[in-house]
């Protein structure tokens, strides 16, 4: 009866619930009857299943693919052109593209490892060694992002802290043709940002840059140069050298 008399605006909105970092554990301590109602709503609301085979799986298609032309259109117009107009030179633009990719990398790592868990083997793995995580990027992350593996994974001969992942035909810039005065620009700085975010999240702090190194037949061949910070190599040496 009271709910009929009270206009709906006078109810305390349920959005005041949840964890409040300023208050701490007192903000979400008890399970109340409203919580139980919310739990019922939450349990019955449709949600996306992350891994195939878990609950009602919308992600049953193992490789959810989107059209390359649509992706390239969005990438060129929204990302490159928009940031291009706001950047004074190539270095600034590449930095901006890198920053756009960074948070995607963090999310891609967590999502991929959750997805790759199966009911038979619910535990996924973390990465403790440099080579393991690079192999994982080379095969699994590349397959997730571009539906193919990267073409090569190399270690620099001159510097111990540098590794290279090589893609002969990077899909994102397949149809991108920067104007002549910007032929130094490599829009795969965006992908480099994804790699950097991913490696940083896995505690392999590094900086990643994309360079165009054309060879015969592959004019857009891109080398992602991964330069690990000293702490990563020291950890590797101390933990695994024996």
């Amino acid at each position: 009866m009271s709910s009929l008399i009270n206009p709906s605006l006078s109810h305390t909105p349920p959005s005041t619930r949840g964890y409040n970092p300023a208050v701490g554990v007192l903000s979400n301590g008890l399970l109340t009857t409203t919580d139980v109602q919310h739990a019922f709503i939450a349990a019955t609301a449709p949600s996306i299943a992350l891994a195939p085979g878990k609950r009602n799986s919308m992600a049953l298609r193992k490789t959810p693919e989107i059209s390359l032309s649509a992706l390239i259109y969005i990438f060129n117009e929204l990302i490159i052109n928009y940031n291009f107009n706001q950047s004074s030179n190539i270095a600034v633009l590449e930095k901006k593209l890198n920053a756009l990719g960074y948070p995607i990398g963090i999310k891609a790592l967590e999502l991929h490892s959750t997805r790759s868990a199966s009911p038979a083997a619910p535990e996924t793995k973390r990465f403790t060694r440099v080579l393991d995580v690079l192999q994982y990027i080379h095969t699994h992350i590349w397959t997730m992002l571009f539906s193919k593996t990267a073409d090569n994974l190399e270690k620099s001969q001159d510097n111990a802290d540098e590794y290279m992942i090589i893609d002969n035909e990077p899909p994102l810039t397949k149809y991108a043709k920067p104007p002549k005065e910007f032929d130094q620009l490599n829009c795969n700085a965006f992908v480099a940002g994804i790699l950097e975010g991913l490696l940083d999240a896995a505690y392999f702090s590094c900086s990643v840059s994309a360079h165009t190194v054309p060879v015969d037949g592959f004019p857009m061949r891109t080398v992602y140069l991964i330069k690990f910070s000293r702490s990563v190599l020291e950890r590797e040496f101390v933990r695994f050298s024996r």
Partner: peptide, 14 residues
């Protein structure tokens, strides 16, 4: 970021 989502909170309690 702190997770302030109420539905996350309820699901964790469940």
């Amino acid at each position: 970021d702190p997770i302030i989502s109420p539905s996350f909170d309820v699901k964790v309690k469940t």
